[in-house]
């Protein structure tokens, strides 16, 4: 009968062990939740002014801010405009227009896109996100709906 009894030592070990384990688990959970940043709603405009008419010469481009992300506004040699997200679809670098290559290029891993934003060479797996371009008066607006 005596043998079946839980000794004081066993009881204390179980109590302390469970307490420590639960404490550790709770602390790890809190620490993991702590390091994940909370979602901060950021202003995400559907349309921004990317440039002024006449600011870009044909065959040039500029990077503009679209909310918190960079966008790329291109003026083609024929004078028309095109706009894309400037974030490379490979690994998030900011792309640029290379007038010597006459297409869009990402310096990080040598990714190439044509003037429609379509990936044509290198590691990018997808085309760039396309934006819409509207000219109103003296300002060039870029909208998310491509």
């Amino acid at each position: 009968m005596e043998k079946d009894k839980v000794s004081r030592r066993q009881f204390l070990n179980a109590l302390l062990g469970t307490g420590l384990f639960a404490g550790l688990l709770g602390s790890v959970y809190a620490a993991v939740r702590y390091v994940i940043p909370p979602d901060v709603p950021e202003a995400s405009p559907s349309m921004v002014v990317a440039a002024r008419v006449g600011e870009l010469n044909p065959g040039t481009a500029k990077i503009f801010r679209f909310g918190a992300k960079p966008g790329l506004l291109l003026r083609l040699p024929d004078g028309s405009y095109r706009a894309f997200s400037a974030i490379c679809t490979h690994l998030d670098c900011t792309v640029q227009y290379r007038s010597d290559m006459a297409h869009i290029w990402c310096a990080c891993h040598d990714g190439h896109y044509d003037l429609n934003g379509v990936n044509i060479s290198g590691p990018p797996p997808r085309p760039l996100d396309k934006f819409g371009v509207i000219i109103k008066g003296e300002e060039i607006f870029v909208s998310r709906e491509g």
Binding site: C93, T94, V95, Q96, A107, C108
Partner: peptide, 10 residues
Amino acid sequence: DPLAPAPAGI
């Protein structure tokens, strides 16, 4: 500059 394109030779 978070808005500048990635530089060549990165």
